[in-house]
Design a protein around this nucleic acid. Structure first.
Lengths: 255, 255
DNA sequence: ATAAACCTTTACGCAACGTAAATGTAAATA
DNA sequence: TATTTACATTTACGTTGCGTAAAGGTTTAT
C-alpha cells in the first residue's frame, strides 16, 4: 500500500526522476517523508498519478494538468475542448507538411531518372513554394485564389526555354532599372524599356494583361517592403522610380 | 545586394536573433563582418537562408538541415523519406490522441446529465486506456489483437453491477492471496480459493476460459515485473506463490 | 563487514530560439 | 551640432520535461 519512488515508478511506468520532478513542481507530492528523507507515496497518490498520466497522454502540459487535478472545480471540459481544437489545428498543419514533403520528394525523385528536366521541375516547384510562403497570403487576398492558382499553374507548365526566358527577363529588368535610375527620368528611354520588359515578364504569369493590373503591381512594389527591398537592393528609391516609369508606360499618369 | 541582420531578417520573415543563432551554430555564416563588427550578408546567403527556411517549414531539425545545405552530396531524398515517416507516425499518434480526447469529452459531457452512470463509463474507458498504455503492446503480441479487442469490448459492455463485481473480486483475490501466502501452502484451501476467484475474475474479460491460458497468465504475473509488482505489494514472492497455486488449481502441476 | 541497491540533493544538458542587459555605432531630427 | 532614435554587438539566463551524472547517505543482502 505504500511505495518508495522506485516502486511507484515501476508500477506506473515512469522514472524516478519524473516523480521527483512532479514533486518539485508541486503536481504530485508524496504522502509523507520518512525519517531518512525518503518520499513515501500512498494509494491516493497512486490514483492521482494515474490521472496525471492520463492527461499527459493527451499531450496536455503539466501546468494545465496541475490545475485539473488540484481543483475539482476547474472546468476540465472546457480545457479539453480547447485542447482538442489545438490538436485538430496541429493535424491540419501536419497534413500540409506531409503533402509538401511528398511534393518535394516527387520532384526530387524524378531528378534521379531525368536529371536535368526534373531538376528544372524541382526549381519551378520551389519557386512557387517560396513565392507562396513569402507572399502567398497577401497576394491571395489582393488578387484572389483563382488568379494566384492560375499563375502557379502557368509556371508549372512552362518549358525550360520559357523558364530560362523568364529568369533572363527578370535579370535584364533589374539591370535596366539600375541604369534608368541613374538618369533620374522615369519617362526616359531606359525606364520605359524596363517597364516594357516588365510587361513581357508579367505575361508569363498572367493569362490576361491589363494596364490597370500592371499599375497595381507597380504600386505594390512600393507598398510592400519585401518587394521594395528587392528592387532597392542597389538604389533606395528605385521601387518608387519603377512605379512611376510603369505608370507612365501604361499611360495612367502623364509625365 | 548586401544586408545587415535586421534587413535580411525582415526580408526573410525571421528575427535577428534567429540569424545570430544560425551564425552561432554554423548553419549560416555572414559573407563578411564589417569594420564595426556588423554581420553583412550577400545574395548567396539570402539563397541559402531561403533553402534553410524551406526545410525548416517541413519541420526538419537544424542539425539535419545543416547537413543538407552544407554538403551537396548528402542524400537529401533519404533524409526526406525518413522525415516523412516521422510525420506520418506523428499524425497517427495525433489521430489517436484526438479520438481519446473526444471519447473523454463525450464521457464527461454525459456526466452532467447522468452523473454516476457516466462517471462509471469514464472509469471503464480509463481502465481500458490505461491497460492498453501499460501492457498493450506486449499483451497484444502474446494474445493477438482480436483477443485483446474482445476483452476491451467486454469491459465496455459491462453493467455497473458487473463492473463492481469485477472490482470486488479483484480486491478479494488480493486479500485471499495475502492470507494464503502466510500459510506457505499453494495447494492449501486459501490459495486454491484465490485461484478459483481468479478464474471467475478472468471470465469477465475472456469469452472462453481454458486452463492453459489461465496458467499462461499466472506465469506472466511472475515474468512481467509490472504485474509482479502489483501482486507483491505486501509480500515479495507472492507472484510466484500465486502462479504455483494456479498451476495446481488448473491441474497442470501436481503438488 | 562489505558490497549491492536503494535513497537524497544539486546541477548541467537538450532545441531553438525569446528576452533582457550593457554597450557601441549610424542615421534622423531639433 | 547636439541629441534622440534606431540600429548593431556580446553575454547570459529562461523556456519544457525530464535525462544524466556526481557526490553522498541508508537499507538490504550476502
Amino acid at each position: 500500500m505504500e511505495y518508495t519512488v522506485q516502486q511507484l515508478a515501476k508500477l506506473a511506468g515512469v522514472t524516478g526522476r519524473t516523480l521527483r520532478y512532479y514533486d518539485e513542481i508541486g503536481i504530485l507530492k508524496p504522502a509523507r517523508i520518512n525519517s531518512s528523507g525518503y518520499r513515501i507515496y500512498g494509494s491516493k497518490e497512486v490514483d492521482k498519478l494515474q490521472q496525471i498520466l492520463f492527461y499527459r497522454e493527451l499531450e496536455v502540459d503539466l501546468e494545465t494538468i496541475k490545475k485539473i487535478v488540484n481543483s475539482p472545480s476547474f472546468d476540465d471540459i472546457q480545457a479539453l475542448k480547447e485542447h482538442r481544437e489545438k490538436l485538430l489545428a496541429k493535424r491540419m498543419q501536419l497534413d500540409l507538411l506531409i503533402a509538401n514533403v511528398e511534393k518535394t520528394l516527387a520532384a526530387k525523385k524524378g531528378r534521379i531518372i531525368m536529371s536535368d528536366k526534373e531538376k528544372f521541375e524541382a526549381f519551378k516547384q520551389q519557386l512557387i513554394d517560396e513565392n507562396e510562403r513569402k507572399y502567398g497570403k497577401e497576394i491571395r487576398e489582393k488578387y484572389g485564389d483563382e488568379q494566384v492558382d492560375r499563375s502557379n499553374q502557368k509556371v508549372k507548365n512552362m518549358t525550360p526555354e520559357q523558364y530560362a526566358e523568364v529568369e533572363r527577363l527578370g535579370q535584364e529588368i533589374l539591370d535596366l532599372l539600375d541604369a534608368a535610375f541613374l538618369t533620374g527620368d522615369p519617362a526616359g528611354e531606359l525606364a520605359q524599356k524596363a517597364a516594357d520588359l516588365h510587361r513581357q515578364w508579367l505575361s508569363y504569369f498572367w493569362d490576361r494583361y491589363t494596364k490597370e493590373a500592371h499599375a497595381g503591381v507597380a504600386q505594390m512594389y512600393v507598398d510592400d517592403e519585401r518587394f521594395a527591398a528587392y528592387y532597392e537592393r542597389k538604389h533606395p528609391g528605385a521601387a518608387k522610380f519603377f512605379r512611376d516609369a510603369i505608370l507612365i508606360y501604361t499611360g495612367l499618369k502623364n509625365n
